[in-house]
Amino acid sequence: RLIESLSQMLSMGFSDEGGWLTRLLQTKNYDIGAALDTIQ
């Protein structure tokens, strides 16, 4: 599930440099909407 969510976020133009996006998705239970809300 992480790989699916991460690949979708990467395709939106986000980077996972340093693993920050992986950690964010894990804390949000791989919910892309919740991750995007946090980023904004």
Rank of each mutant, 00 (worst) to 15 (best):
30 Y>F: 12
8 Q>N: 08
14 F>T: 02
6 L>W: 05
29 N>K: 09
3 I>W: 15
11 S>F: 07
10 L>W: 04
32 I>T: 05
2 L>H: 06
11 S>M: 13
26 Q>G: 07
9 M>C: 11
38 T>F: 15
20 W>K: 03
31 D>H: 07
2 L>Q: 05
25 L>N: 01
4 E>S: 12
18 G>L: 08
16 D>G: 02
32 I>Q: 03
14 F>M: 04
11 S>E: 12
36 L>I: 10
27 T>H: 13
40 Q>H: 13
7 S>P: 01
18 G>H: 09
27 T>A: 15
11 S>N: 12
16 D>K: 03
2 L>G: 05
21 L>I: 05
28 K>W: 12
33 G>Y: 14
38 T>P: 01
37 D>S: 13
20 W>E: 03
13 G>N: 04
10 L>V: 09
1 R>F: 10
38 T>S: 15
35 A>W: 08
9 M>D: 00
10 L>M: 12
3 I>R: 14
33 G>Q: 15
8 Q>K: 14
25 L>S: 00
7 S>G: 11
7 S>A: 14
25 L>H: 00
24 L>F: 04
13 G>Q: 05
3 I>L: 14
38 T>W: 15
3 I>E: 15
8 Q>A: 13
4 E>L: 12
35 A>V: 15
25 L>M: 04
17 E>L: 10
28 K>G: 05
12 M>E: 03
13 G>S: 04
39 I>Y: 05
15 S>R: 08
25 L>E: 00
30 Y>S: 04
28 K>T: 14
22 T>S: 11
19 G>V: 02
21 L>F: 06
32 I>K: 04
36 L>S: 01
32 I>V: 13
3 I>Y: 14
39 I>S: 02
33 G>M: 14
25 L>Q: 00
10 L>H: 06
20 W>I: 04
5 S>V: 14
16 D>H: 06
4 E>G: 07
33 G>S: 14
35 A>I: 11
29 N>W: 11
38 T>A: 15
31 D>T: 05
6 L>P: 00
20 W>R: 04
9 M>L: 13
19 G>F: 08
30 Y>L: 07
9 M>K: 01
4 E>N: 10
35 A>Y: 04
8 Q>S: 08
7 S>L: 14
7 S>Q: 13
23 R>I: 10
33 G>F: 13
21 L>P: 00
21 L>T: 00
11 S>V: 10
18 G>V: 07
1 R>Y: 10
21 L>N: 00
2 L>R: 05
1 R>D: 10
1 R>A: 11
14 F>S: 00
18 G>M: 08
19 G>M: 05
28 K>Q: 10
34 A>F: 06
4 E>M: 12
19 G>I: 01
32 I>D: 01
35 A>L: 08
23 R>S: 07
35 A>H: 04
31 D>E: 07
39 I>V: 05
20 W>V: 04
8 Q>D: 06
35 A>N: 00
28 K>Y: 13
8 Q>L: 15
18 G>N: 11
6 L>I: 07
17 E>V: 12
30 Y>T: 03
9 M>G: 00
2 L>V: 06
38 T>L: 11
8 Q>F: 13
18 G>W: 08
27 T>D: 14
27 T>G: 11
17 E>D: 12
34 A>N: 07
21 L>R: 00
14 F>Y: 13
15 S>P: 02
22 T>I: 07
13 G>L: 08
33 G>R: 10
36 L>G: 03
34 A>C: 09
34 A>V: 07
36 L>H: 02
35 A>M: 05
32 I>S: 03
2 L>M: 07
31 D>W: 10
15 S>K: 09
30 Y>K: 03
22 T>P: 01
1 R>V: 10
40 Q>Y: 15
2 L>F: 08
24 L>T: 00
40 Q>L: 15
13 G>W: 09
33 G>K: 14
37 D>H: 13
4 E>Q: 12
38 T>V: 14
39 I>L: 12
14 F>I: 05
6 L>K: 01
40 Q>T: 12
29 N>Q: 08
31 D>Q: 05
27 T>S: 15
7 S>R: 15
28 K>L: 15
7 S>T: 14
16 D>Q: 05
2 L>T: 02
17 E>P: 07
15 S>C: 11
25 L>I: 04
10 L>A: 09
23 R>Y: 08
32 I>L: 07
21 L>E: 01
26 Q>E: 12
19 G>L: 08
20 W>T: 02
13 G>H: 05
16 D>F: 05
4 E>K: 11
29 N>E: 08
32 I>A: 04
9 M>T: 01
11 S>L: 12
5 S>L: 13
15 S>L: 09
15 S>M: 09
24 L>Q: 00
23 R>L: 10
25 L>P: 00
28 K>V: 15
21 L>G: 00
28 K>E: 06
30 Y>I: 04
15 S>W: 06
15 S>H: 13
9 M>H: 01
20 W>H: 03
40 Q>A: 12
2 L>N: 04
14 F>R: 00
17 E>A: 10
39 I>Q: 03
25 L>W: 04
10 L>R: 10
40 Q>K: 14
22 T>F: 04
32 I>F: 07
38 T>H: 15
18 G>F: 09
20 W>M: 03
30 Y>A: 05
33 G>T: 13
30 Y>N: 07
13 G>I: 09
11 S>D: 10
39 I>E: 00
13 G>E: 04
26 Q>I: 15
